[in-house]
């Protein structure tokens, strides 16, 4: 059997398949439909220092091969996660549990990390500096090298475990942002978050989303994501986690061949709730059929 395990800094995943933050709840929403423990890990919903109500409805509109969302990081805050959700999921799941950390200012990010640090089953965080749907913070940090560096540096001082920075594609050079995160000690970068987009209801002559603009995800963004992963993987020495429209094993292989060490499945979970498990099995089958001893043999071969 081929080795599918991969390392993200100090974090070892049993296989490269993760679920993307905001598309998989806390795993529990899917546990009747699939085996969560077949995955490398799950990345739970963006978690902020204080509870957030998110944006008003409507928050979603379907677009060709994708969707726009403007959820706006609705969550009950880190204390609720630690008290009510973590004890349950830490007991149930053997796959890695990665927390996506959201913040409006640098001190918010740091404080959330400090609260999460004692949880022994949380061996990695993904820091969201790329949410296009919140007014303060979020993407603001991820669109300049200085902003990305500032958050990475501050979090790095308080977070000794695996640190993943989630990058925005809404920038001139995602390579420069990735390098800035690497220089400040990030163990990995994940990309891409959603592409900022907009859709208008011409009958009503107004935008579909309450926030006017939102984040585009789904297969529509995949070629952009593959290109960015390919560019970043060539430019940095840390592992890259690829995401953006992955809906099949072949899609996941594209990202790995472009240089990704691990991949995340996001919007596709909404259409096929078992897709992440199927892709994990599909990667193993691909290795067998192609005589690979280790998934890393095809990493970055393009």
């Amino acid at each position: 059997m081929a080795n599918l395990s991969v390392n993200i800094g100090p974090l070892r995943l049993q296989n490269p398949v993760l679920t993307a933050s905001g598309t998989f709840g806390y795993g529990e929403e899917f546990e009747d439909l699939m085996d969560i423990n077949s995955l490398g890990g799950i990345i739970v919903k963006g978690t902020s220092l204080h509870p957030r109500q998110g944006n008003p409805a409507p928050r979603m509109v379907e677009t060709p091969s994708g969707m726009l969302n403007a959820v706006g990081l609705q969550n009950k805050g880190v204390d609720h996660f630690i008290e009510h959700i973590y004890p349950r999921i830490a007991k149930k799941y053997t796959s890695e549990i990665i927390v996506n950390v959201a913040g409006s200012c640098v001190s918010d990010y740091v404080e959330v990390c400090e609260k999460l640090a004692p949880l022994d089953r949380i061996r990695a965080i993904e820091v969201n500096i790329s949410c296009p749907n919140v007014k303060q913070g979020g993407m603001a940090f991820g669109t300049t090298c200085e902003g990305a560096a500032e958050v990475t540096k501050a979090v790095r001082q308080k977070w000794p475990k695996a640190l993943i920075m989630k990058l925005s594609p809404n920038v001139t050079s995602i390579v420069d942002i990735a390098k800035a995160a690497e220089a400040e000690g990030a163990d990995s970068v994940s990309l891409i978050n959603t592409l900022m987009g907009m859709a208008i209801d011409v009958k009503r002559r107004r935008p579909y989303l309450s926030t006017i603009t939102g984040g585009l995800s789904g297969p529509a963004v995949r070629p952009v994501a593959v290109r960015m992963v390919w560019q970043v993987a060539k430019a940095v020495g840390i592992p890259v986690i690829g995401l953006g429209g992955i809906a099949s094993t072949d899609d996941a292989l594209q990202f790995i061949m472009a240089g990704a060490t691990a991949i995340q499945i996001g919007t596709a979970n909404f259409i096929n709730p078992r897709i992440s498990q199927e892709v994990a099995a599909g990667l193993e089958q691909y290795c067998q059929e192609n005589g690979l001893n280790d998934i890393s043999e095809i990493r970055g071969i393009v």
Binding site: T23, F30, K45, R59, M60, M67, V71, F270
Partner: peptide, 17 residues
């Protein structure tokens, strides 16, 4: 019947106040 994506309570797209 708010617009839905996942139908499972995961994506938080179809919320009602």
């Amino acid at each position: 019947e708010n617009m839905m994506a996942c139908g499972l309570g995961a994506c938080l797209c179809c919320v009602e106040d």
